[in-house]
């Protein structure tokens, strides 16, 4: 192993350029990759400062998308109501910019102090809240009871407006539940898992649709074959009496 590492292999000798890479080559490739990587790691560092409620109050469909927008400079640091002043200060420090008050367009500062609760006598099992929940905190199936897993609820409020019978209320978050800051990584992984699952489901649905079209075409092709054999049989019969 050590020997191999010290002796240059045949392929590396062959691939060795006779001249150093040109300036344009360097500009074309290396900086591009590096900048993409940098933006990714910056987005990850920004994401680590966000509360992970996935509430979309920032105007992006989740904390990571907001972090990516911040990393590429298309969003501002004052768009996260659940994070409030503390998050704005942390983001300002990371990005080396001045702090500013929360943008009122994104809402008022609201600490994560509540969880959703479904009034069972009113729930009609419409499934809309289950689909709206970004962290899979609602257990339920169509026409069956829906229930909030309190420990998993990120207080995003996204289930409230979609409920057709207004049976969801926000109640104070129990002290027995883990602190929101402790829950943040869990909410992040729940959100990621849901995104991946839905992408997988969508891909499976699409391939099923494609298969259906292929099957339809095949059926049509065999229809044509049947038609052709009927024609041949008819032709033979019409010849027979004549002979």
């Amino acid at each position: 192993m050590l020997k191999l590492a010290t002796v240059p292999s045949v392929s590396s000798m062959r691939d060795k350029p006779s001249q150093p890479p040109s300036r344009s080559q360097l500009l074309d490739k290396a900086p591009d990759n590096a900048s993409v990587q940098h933006a990714n790691s910056l987005a990850a560092r920004i994401d680590a400062l966000l509360p992970q409620t996935q509430c979309a109050r920032c105007g992006y469909p989740g904390c990571r998308p907001y972090a990516e927008a911040l990393a590429n400079g298309s969003a501002d640091i004052n768009q996260c109501p659940p994070g409030g002043e503390a998050t704005i200060e942390a983001l300002a420090a990371l990005l080396g910019v001045a702090t500013k008050p929360l943008n009122p367009a994104n809402g008022v500062e609201a600490a994560i102090f509540s969880v959703a609760l479904i009034a069972e006598q009113d729930c009609i099992g419409c499934f809309k809240c289950v689909l709206a929940c970004p962290v899979d905190a609602i257990v339920g199936a169509p026409k069956l009871m829906h229930t909030v897993i309190a420990a998993q609820c990120s207080s995003c409020d996204l289930c409230l407006p979609v409920c057709p019978v207004d049976c969801i209320t926000m109640i104070p978050r129990s002290n027995a539940l883990p602190e929101p800051s402790v829950m943040a990584p869990r909410w992040r992984s729940l959100f990621d898992a849901q995104q991946q699952r839905r992408a997988r489901d969508e891909a499976a649905l699409e391939s099923a649709r494609r298969q259906q079209r292929v099957d339809a075409l095949k059926t049509r092709a065999s229809d044509i074959n049947i038609q052709a054999s009927i024609e041949r049989a008819r032709a033979r019969r019409s010849i027979k009496p004549a002979s």
Partner: peptide, 25 residues
């Protein structure tokens, strides 16, 4: 994850098997 399944359905990693109570309303 909100989709009714048969008991003999094979599981995938990360699946959440959910028991649903009936509606009251």
């Amino acid at each position: 994850f909100g989709r009714l399944v048969e008991l003999d359905q094979p599981l995938n990693d990360g699946d959440r098997v959910e028991l649903y109570r009936p509606l009251i309303a």
